[in-house]
């Protein structure tokens, strides 16, 4: 990750900036009240901005969702809104977990806890709706849906 530089702007807020891999300097001002400004620095005059975008708090959430979160999160968030009492958990398969190299079917999660594994995040990819014969490997993150109680049981199984 690129180095992020922080500068205090007294009376305004804080500015963070970094240089992208292609050499473009980018910055973000976080105003006190929660507003943000995205700064695109000028290539000819590196001390000035060639573009400034003002974001409200809501805009910031929208943009970070677009930049950072996968489709799965989005659709799951939608599901969660509809069904009360349903919770989602992201459970990492650590190296040394008993499930490293074992399949979803081996765990019999649904039978034992009522929890479904709805997706698995592996590196940058997301396997949506994995089949029961899907084999976990260390570093995966299982996206599970179920009750709070069931999820904590699954967490114990997967990390155990």
């Amino acid at each position: 990750m690129a180095e992020i530089r922080e500068t205090q702007l007294p009376g305004v807020g804080v500015r963070h900036e970094f240089t992208t891999d292609s050499g473009q300097a980018l910055g973000v001002i976080s105003h006190r009240g929660g507003r943000k400004e995205i700064l695109i620095y000028d290539r000819d005059d590196p001390d000035a901005c060639s573009g400034v975008v003002h974001l409200t708090e809501g805009d910031t959430r929208t943009l970070s969702e677009l930049l950072g979160a996968s489709q799965v999160t989005h659709s799951l968030a939608a599901v969660e809104q509809h069904i009360e009492g349903l919770a989602i958990d992201w459970i990492p398969i650590a190296a040394g977990s008993t499930f490293d190299g074992r399949s979803i079917a081996d765990g019999m999660f649904r039978t034992r806890t009522g929890v479904s594994v709805v997706a698995v995040v592996r590196d940058a990819d997301t396997v949506a709706a994995p089949r029961p014969d899907f084999v976990f490997s260390a570093g995966d993150t299982a996206v599970c849906v179920g009750t709070d109680e069931g999820l904590s049981d699954v967490r114990a199984l997967l990390t155990g």
């Binding site: 500068t7 205090q8 702007l9 007294p10 009376g11 305004v12 500015r15 910055g27 001002i29 400004e37 700064l39 620095y41 590196p46 001390d47 000035a48 901005c49 400034v52």
Partner: peptide, 17 residues
């Protein structure tokens, strides 16, 4: 003038403080 993000701006603001 859209200068809040400029690199000279902290110098100006610190002087004001």
């Amino acid at each position: 003038l859209g200068r809040m993000g400029n690199r000279e701006t902290p110098a100006v603001l610190n002087l004001l403080v």
